[in-house]
């Protein structure tokens, strides 16, 4: 009984508790407290998200109703954009929701309706709002601004956008490059001359997509960038030559067959195959013996497309014969090297 009392006293009387035990219980209480706080944070953040979603939906409804009315109702029955702006676009959250809806609609419309939306964008002061973003310090805000100006077809800020094509952040860089393709109507790819960073595959894909979206009237001759030092720019130009079937670039492509980079040569083989450049057949057959295994495979895929069947069959036979002779020579050499 006395022992039990002593034990109970130990747990109740913190003065007699060893220091380490006390510290342990304190840390355990701290962990439990943090867990409770985290749980509370989860509950509160759910509540906050709910409120935000309701606000978003409310503003979205207002935006859609106003845009529809602006586009299709008689002018005298529509609230003026200036009044709407004063009444509803009172903070950046609401402006952003309105902008998202406006841009979404603008993407899917053409002609007069699209022009009317651009007018609305200006009259509501949203153009200014987008322009201001270009001067922000955060990369994502700048990229957001570039995206908005591009979607709304605002060309005045091309110069400023061009200054971001070599930005250290890859997403901002990519957004700026794609924006120029769509906004710089006279020379959509001229920024390639000033690129200091390599173009990743992702950036190339974005540029190709931007070019598609822009329905470019003045397509540049991509062979002009085939002599660039930066390999990724050359590869991108080759891909664009194929995409836009620029057959006039074939002589320039043939010159690249002797480029020191195997990766780039592989891209040329692929391009010659897709362009069906018959003039390349002789050169490819001559290059075959000294190519990398991967590029050899690419040549073998290309030749049947750009040469006659009998020429290709003869070439294959020649390769087989050379390989057999090589194997036999190796065998003889190995046998000779073996100790007697």
């Amino acid at each position: 009984m006395q022992t039990l009392q002593a034990d109970l006293a130990f747990w109740v009387d913190t003065a007699t508790m060893p220091r380490l035990v006390k510290v342990n219980f304190m840390i355990a209480a701290l962990f439990l407290g943090i867990a409770l706080l985290l749980f509370l944070f989860i509950v509160l953040s759910r509540y906050r998200d709910g409120v935000r979603l309701r606000k978003y939906k409310w503003m979205e409804e207002k935006a859609q109703a106003y845009i529809t009315s602006y586009l299709f109702d008689e002018e005298e029955n529509v609230e003026s954009p200036e009044d709407f702006r004063r009444k509803y676009l009172t903070n950046s959250f609401r402006r952003q929701v309105f902008m998202q809806n406006l841009i979404l609609l603008h993407k899917n419309l053409l002609g007069e309706t699209s022009d009317k939306l651009s007018q609305l964008y200006q009259r509501l002061g949203l153009l200014q709002h987008s322009k201001q973003k270009l001067y922000a310090s955060k990369w994502n805000t700048i990229a957001e601004g570039i995206g908005e100006l591009t979607e709304m077809g605002v060309q005045q800020e091309k110069g400023l956008i061009r200054s971001f094509i070599n930005h250290p952040h890859p997403i901002l860089r990519s957004e700026a490059q794609a924006a120029l393709v769509r906004l710089d109507i006279d020379a959509p790819f001229s920024f390639l001359n000033d690129l200091a960073e390599p173009l990743t595959d992702w950036e190339q894909l974005q540029l190709a997509r931007a070019a598609q979206k822009a329905h470019l009237i003045k397509l540049p001759d991509f062979s002009r960038w085939l002599t660039k030092q930066e390999e990724s720019i050359v590869i991108f130009s080759i891909r664009m030559i194929v995409q836009y079937a620029q057959h006039q670039a074939e002589p320039a492509l043939l010159r690249l067959l002797h480029h020191p980079s195997p990766n780039l040569r592989k891209e040329v083989f692929l391009a010659l195959r897709q362009l069906e450049t018959f003039a390349a057949a002789e050169q490819l057959m001559a290059l075959y013996p000294n190519e990398t295994p991967e590029n050899k495979a690419e040549i073998l895929k290309t030749l049947p497309v750009i040469t006659f069947e009998e020429t290709f069959t003869a070439f294959q036979r020649g390769i087989q014969q050379a390989e057999n002779e090589g194997l036999a020579a190796t065998r003889v050499a190995l046998q000779a090297a073996e100790p007697a």
Binding site: V21, N24, A28, F31, A35, L38, F39, I42
Partner: peptide, 23 residues
Amino acid sequence: PYFFSFLALVYTFAIMNSVFAIL
């Protein structure tokens, strides 16, 4: 006493870690 104090420590840490994961 040491045993229970360490048990409490480990148990509460595990809970905190899991709630953090839920977050």
